[in-house]
Design a protein around this nucleic acid. Structure first.
Lengths: 206, 206
DNA sequence: ACAGGCATACATACATGAATGTAAACTTAC
DNA sequence: GTAAGTTTACATTCATGTATGTATGCCTGT
């Protein structure tokens, strides 16, 4: 039954993206055919090619649905009353990011990005990761630098190292947990790791 | 000119594995055909199918050439004179692992494992990672637990969290650096991160 | 020691299957 | 009626696995 109403068309687009998430997770991106995605969504390849240019385009749209840059996370948690608490802001933003990661869609898409697709493929996943990482690093470096100037960083620790440690820890935790989420409860382990990091490596000025 | 001598045959096998590393890095595992690998090695698919059952088998052999479990790293660094310095052993083993990672072949293969192949594909890369991670975790947990019993761990930090933090940090650093090794010098940043971690989170008993 | 025979180490050819992109047909909303 | 949404049909490309070809290294009997 061809030609749905405008709203219905938009709905099928979302359905196709949902289907893509599902199939990508199981088969991996490169081994998934557009046919499989279409069938999962209860349609044919024609629908896919109508809404998206090709697999790369579809993939990109799928990622866009969950994209949430650190910049915005920080805007959410930064306390307007206390504009100079960079480390506390970072801690909260990190914890908040960890919570978002556990939401089903976010979890699925990040699993796909980290484990079910490869570089130099249809989709340039490395460029996506690179872009996100650079933005994260720049934003975090600002905050760590401010913290250091305010004497809130334990002496002897350079902002760059602290920054890279946090990024590595967070990224590594994501990568490791998403590989097999049943192994441990990230809602418990994650915050303990993050809090331990901030409590130990980072010290309020006297 | 078919049929080489036994030693030459072994040499072509290695050549094929080298070729695989090269092509996998550029095209990604799933998008590389055995034809491309064979041509890169200056042969035909016949040679590939002679030495390996299929792409998965070839991939597995490629990984085996660099596989170096943490257990062995620890055996290398553990001081027989001072059998009770678990944290120092871990620090050294971690630093040593970091150095190994920078060796060209190790670097290539790990890049492929982390960025150029996907789960649920020909090769079960998740199983490989899982296996390594489990062994690492178990071994490290032993050492962290011993350290805690000896009062060498900062009070208030549980061995499990310390263990997972170190694993996440190391894994995240690998993942991040290998994505674009030109961004920073891991030979400089890596040890500083690791040493900072051990210096700050882990404390010699009084 | 060497001549045959057999297994080895590849190359070539072929059959199959599957995915892609596009074009054309069809149906209904607007 | 026309354009948006979707299906069906088709042509092309490409990787895989296998089967077959073939020349050489290696070994065994005498």
């Amino acid at each position: 039954m061809p030609k749905r109403t405008k709203a219905e068309a938009e709905a099928t687009r979302e359905t196709l993206l949902d289907a893509a998430e599902t199939v990508f997770l199981v088969r991996g991106v490169s081994k998934t055919s557009l046919e499989q995605i279409a069938r999962q969504a209860g349609m044919t390849r024609g629908a896919v090619y109508w809404h998206f240019k090709n697999k790369a385009d579809l993939f990109h749209a799928m990622v866009e649905r969950v994209k949430m840059p650190l910049r915005q996370l920080l805007d959410d948690v930064e306390d307007p009353e206390r504009p100079q608490a960079p480390l506390e802001s970072l801690r909260l933003a990190t914890l908040h990011a960890l919570e978002r990661l556990q939401r089903p869609r976010s979890r699925r898409v990040h699993t796909i990005l980290l484990h079910c697709c490869e570089a130099s493929s249809d989709v340039d996943t490395l460029a996506l990761q690179h872009q996100l990482a650079e933005e994260c690093f720049a934003t975090m470096m600002e905050h760590f630098s401010i913290a250091q100037r305010q004497g809130m960083l334990v002496t002897g620790i350079e902002p760059e190292i602290a920054c890279r440690m946090l990024m590595a820890m967070f990224g590594g935790l994501m990568h490791d947990w998403l590989r097999d989420p049943e192994r441990y409860d990230i809602a418990d382990v994650g915050p303990r790791m993050i809090n331990t990091y901030f409590d130990r490596l980072v010290q309020d000025a006297a």
